[in-house]
Amino acid sequence: MIIRTRWALACAPVVSALMLSACTGQSSGSDEAVAVTSTNDTCEVSQNSAPAGTVTFSVTNTGTEATEFYVYEGDGTTIVGEVENVGPGLTRDLVATLTPGTYVTACNPGMNGEDLRAEFTATDAAPSSQPGAA
């Protein structure tokens, strides 16, 4: 019983430390922010490219069903990042670290497997941010 208690007491701080250390240490200054608007049947990404690095996709759900947002590798199957539980009226952020290349963004309103995809490019040089066409 003593062993169990000690083990359990040791467990909580370890978990807390794990959670805290998992925060990424990006400064907000170098972040590229991309706005995503998801409705029941559309998925508007404010720009289709961004400089490689840390990109924050701010996903706003203006529809009536819960949605989720994914960023896939160019193959369309390997997940780079995902934010789920974006309920109607909510805005949630997906922070992804993108190396130069082609990606696929996808909203999944209703979470029924029929997602709305678009291409997204992370550009090589990273000078000032250059928003592309919507």
Binding site: A22, C23, T24, S27, S28, T56, E82, V95, A96
Partner: peptide
């Protein structure tokens, strides 16, 4: 200012 990466959260 800090955010959690997707991989870390998963």
């Amino acid at each position: 200012p800090r955010s959690l990466s997707f991989t870390a959260q998963e």
